[in-house]
């Protein structure tokens, strides 16, 4: 029963991979396995099953790293710091993946690799924060200091994120689904007319999308578990020597 999650992950990921590539895209979907055609997107709409989960895991990993960082500050338990740093390491990998997959896709949809749209900017900031977090950790030699200061830095860096949520939409025109844009004529904020931004998932796409989110989340927890167990063993064996 303990391995149930791993089999669930296997089944879900298989369904997601099949669901990403197999369903044909037609103008008027009639059966459940046909995706609707979105002009300007066509097959490229399928990115959502792989790109969005990586971005979601980046955020989840950051929150977990901060949560265990705060718990370290409260309990002074070294294993909390180990959990925190392994969540951050995994988050860093997914952050790079979200950035790279997004920019490859943007090249073919929006014309160039990088646009500084609000979401792109925030993932870039997150990448910088992750980078700074690891740079800080590598510059501290005492274990206790490293745990304490990196936990504090993760809190301080997290405090700036609400500002990005308020600032970015004002400064830049969004390109991601759900963005608003500023009407050049009246200066009012309005819903955009761009096909990517108007993008709404059909019911069958939504099912694959949520299965994909669940699958990637299980994958994350599995890898996180492995990583912090290995680091814990390393920690114990170093103490014995």
């Amino acid at each position: 029963m303990k391995n149930f999650w791993k089999f669930l992950l296997f089944v879900l990921m298989t369904i997601v991979i099949i669901g990403t590539f197999v369903p044909p895209i037609v103008q008027y979907p009639k059966s459940f396995f046909e995706f609707p055609l979105i002009p300007g997107l066509e097959d490229k709409a399928r990115i959502i099953f792989f790109h969005v989960p990586t971005a979601w895991l980046t955020v989840l990993a950051y929150l977990l790293a901060m949560f265990y960082g705060i718990r370290y500050l409260k309990r002074k338990d070294m294993y909390d710091d180990i959990k925190s740093v392994s969540a951050a390491a995994l988050g860093f990998v997914f952050c790079i993946l979200a950035t790279v997959t997004g920019s490859v896709w943007a090249k073919f949809t929006w014309g160039s690799f990088w646009h500084w749209d609000p979401r792109e900017t925030s993932i870039f900031i997150l990448l910088l924060i992750y980078g700074a977090y690891f740079a800080l950790r590598s510059a501290l030699d005492s274990e206790e200091k490293r745990a304490r200061l990196s936990a504090i830095y993760s809190i301080i860096a997290f405090l700036t994120t609400p500002f990005f949520i308020f600032i970015m939409p004002r400064l830049m025109i969004g390109l991601h689904p759900g963005s608003l844009e500023i009407d050049p004529a009246t200066g009012q904020v309005r819903a955009s007319s761009n096909p990517v931004i108007k993008f709404e998932m059909a019911a069958n796409m939504r099912v694959v999308f949520f299965l994909s989110l669940i699958a990637f989340t299980i994958l994350f927890f599995w890898f996180w578990n492995l990583a912090h167990r290995i680091l814990k063993l390393e920690h114990v064996s170093q103490k014995e020597i």
Binding site: T20, F21, V104, F223, E234
Partner: peptide
């Protein structure tokens, strides 16, 4: 053939996951 762009993206995600697993293996 924009389906292949999606393929590239899936491969990139796979490479990322694989390299993380490889790093873990080296640690073990």
């Amino acid at each position: 053939n924009s389906l292949y762009i999606v393929l590239i993206i899936v491969l990139l995600v796979w490479i990322g996951i694989f390299s993380f697993a490889y790093k873990l293996d080296k640690k073990v």
